[in-house]
Amino acid sequence: MKAKEVPQEISMLEGHQRACYALGEDGRYTVVPSTGWEVEKIVNAVAVDEIRATIESARQRALRGEASALEFHMLRCHMTPAMLAANAGICKWRVRRHLRPDIFAGLRAAILARYADALRMNPEELKQVPGTAL
């Protein structure tokens, strides 16, 4: 890739620039800052859209009472039950159980606080599910 071919397109970098190595006029490699490449935006969107769809489906199930707010917030932070378990210091099978809406509704404040901390939010927010898509 030549320095002048380094893509300067709009991507998910949101105004940041990343370093690309490309050949300068003299045939030596140099660092060329790039604003992004459409290709990386497209493949990044595949991953991001997939995660968004999962979060949105959890949000709607939570609003219908079929999933807990905890499940929604866990997915919102891109976590799996195993990761949430590790970050909250609560064992995996208990986390899975707490994800059920009926069990989640009866959780003690101390447990809620641990989940809230692991997801960087306050315990009150943890019980809420937003009415509109993120």
Binding site: W37, I42, V43
Partner: peptide
């Protein structure tokens, strides 16, 4: 497929899966 290309272009420095 998208994941492979992300590992190639999004991760790290330089582009083209560190070949450059």
């Amino acid at each position: 497929l998208a994941n492979i290309i992300r590992m190639q272009e999004e991760i790290g420095t330089g582009g083209a899966g560190f070949r450059f």
